[in-house]
């Protein structure tokens, strides 16, 4: 039923001058080829060329900026290394300076102390000398007065007068003994 309708339709269509032909018509071949050729040339010049260039340019730009970024990064790392090295150097230098000044201070201190010690020793020695001299002086005075006193004491005790010369000998002798005792 439906099939007959289609058959009639096909016939009716061919009666109306329609033909679903698989024979290509010249009226369509050359305009389509011509249209394609014109479109190809126009698009090549005005569309695909610029767009492909733009794609190329974009990928170039991206690659360049990536390379640049890489370079900048390397540069920054290098600078950082530099600064670190400089910092370490400066730190070492500062430590050296501190050490040096400490040494200088130390040596100055030592020097001052040594000088002070020397001076003190000198003062003490002088003081000692002075004391010694005083002592000797006092001793000599004492010897003199002790001799006179002893002669008079001994004369009174013994009651006999000894000659001046014998006295002197005796006194000298005892004094020497006393002096040697005193020395010890």
């Amino acid at each position: 039923m439906l099939f007959e309708e289609f058959a009639y339709a096909a016939e009716a269509a061919s009666d109306q001058g329609a033909s679903i032909s698989i024979i290509p018509s010249l009226a369509e071949i050359w305009p389509s080829l011509f249209a394609f050729a014109v479109l190809f040339l126009l698009l090549k010049k005005f569309a695909f060329g610029p767009i492909l260039n733009m794609l190329q340019k974009r990928s170039d730009t991206i690659r360049e900026s990536l390379e640049k970024a890489e370079e900048t990064k390397l540069e920054a790392e290098r600078l950082l290394e530099d600064y670190k090295a400089q910092l370490a150097e400066a730190r070492a230098e500062a430590a050296g300076l501190a050490e040096q000044s400490r040494k200088i201070a130390e040596s100055m201190k030592d020097e001052i102390v040594a000088q002070a010690n020397e001076e003190a020793a000198l003062i003490i020695a002088r003081a000692r000398e002075a004391v010694e001299a005083e002592k000797k002086l006092a001793m000599a005075e004492l010897q003199g007065s002790v001799a006179a006193l002893s002669v008079s004491v001994a004369g009174k005790l013994i009651g006999e007068k000894l000659s001046e010369a014998d006295h002197a000998k005796l006194i000298e002798k005892y004094l020497a003994e006393v002096g040697s005792f005193n020395d010890n």
């Binding site: 099939f3 007959e4 289609f6 058959a7 096909a10 016939e11």
Partner: peptide
């Protein structure tokens, strides 16, 4: 109807 055999084919 003679066209119908073509259509069938």
């Amino acid at each position: 109807m003679e066209g119908s055999i073509n259509v069938l084919g």
